[in-house]
């Protein structure tokens, strides 16, 4: 699949707006490439029906970029985590730390024990009073504003990558208290449910071995109802679909043992035009850039492209990169 070239282009030259979340952008490029690389291997080894498209392209690109990714990790590493921006201040941030650790895991980059302990100390220092984590513990947090279940997921996933235990009962209880009447999770108690936050909450509980069947049962109904079109999922009830939610929803369901397959749309090979129904994922695919946009006729980006590919080819997800 030609999306590998798209990721390679982003890894070569990125626009200015990427600067504030540089680590995240590189992470999504690596995630997308790794899905494609694994798919190439799966297709070559076992895929009978599917014709392997340009076998090895993603794998080759990923291999070629490994030395640069290694240099990148060393450059963005602050001593106790990762910084988010390439040009800006060198403060360690939690989300960037998770993305940095995942990139490192992907290319088998090993931190020494002292570094691992420093990172782990930083991650734990992001924990706020009520058991949720924030992006940067030095910030003002008089109202417990900067902490969220997104950051809590990043903290737990980082600890998992560092081989540390996740055993924070207060935090698990706090996350459970975010589950709403519709079964989804929001930012705070009695907030509106959101599929992305629901993934973060469920995955955090799962990482802590604390995902009960009662919580699961309620969440499944919310997640199943997110399907609104063929292969189209929304993030909240009665909203339009966005292709990143195909990933957040399907991956949440898969984590809970409920496998719902997408009908892999014809976009994989753009010469095929045998689709009979309008497929949402196909309509978000830009066949010139070979990348996905959030909704049809908008600008593609690495985040939506990587998550769309992960949603379409779940068997090709590297679980060093998507931590459950």
């Amino acid at each position: 699949m030609r999306s590998a070239k798209y990721f390679e282009r982003v890894l070569t030259l990125a626009p200015l707006r990427v600067d504030a979340e540089h680590c995240a952008t590189v992470y999504f490029c690596v995630l997308g490439l790794s899905v494609l690389a694994k798919k190439e291997i799966n297709d070559t080894n076992g895929g009978e029906a599917e014709k392997p498209c340009r076998t090895g392209e993603a794998g080759t690109i990923l291999g070629n970029w490994k030395p640069k990714l290694q240099q990148y990790i060393e450059y963005m590493f602050t001593g106790d985590g990762f910084r988010a921006s390439s040009s800006g201040v060198r403060d360690t941030e939690l989300l960037a730390t998770y993305f940095g650790l995942a990139i490192a895991a992907m290319i088998n980059y090993e931190f020494n024990d002292a570094d691992k302990n420093n990172i782990s100390t930083f991650v734990l220092s992001c924990r706020q009073k009520k058991g949720m984590y924030c992006n940067n513990p030095t910030l003002f947090d008089e109202y417990d504003l900067n902490s969220s279940v997104r950051h809590t997921y990043a903290a737990f996933a980082s600890l998992k990558l560092l081989g540390k235990n996740i055993n924070d009962l207060e935090s698990f209880e706090r996350i459970k208290s975010l589950q709403n009447y519709d079964g989804g999770f929001g930012m705070c108690v009695n907030d509106e449910s959101h599929a992305g936050l629901t993934f973060c909450a469920l995955a955090s509980l799962e990482l802590g071995g604390s995902l009960s069947s009662a919580v699961k049962h309620k969440a499944v109904r919310f997640l199943l109802n997110r399907k609104v079109l063929s292969n189209g999922f929304n993030g909240r009830p009665n909203k339009d679909p966005d292709c990143c939610y195909s990933f957040w929803v399907l991956n949440s369901l898969r984590m809970m043992g409920i496998d719902i397959s997408l009908n892999t749309p014809a976009l994989v090979d753009s010469n095929q035009s045998s689709q009979t129904e309008i497929d949402f994922m196909s309509s978000c695919f830009d066949s010139i850039l070979h990348a996905f946009s959030p909704i049809p006729d908008s600008d593609p980006d690495p985040y939506h492209t990587a998550l769309a590919l992960a949603a379409l080819f779940p068997e090709s997800i590297d679980h060093a990169l998507v931590i459950l």
Partner: peptide, 16 residues
Amino acid sequence: AEIPGHLAQIAYPEHF
């Protein structure tokens, strides 16, 4: 600073 290896290099405008 420029990123070593120019990974996802940004062409920073002079003003920036």
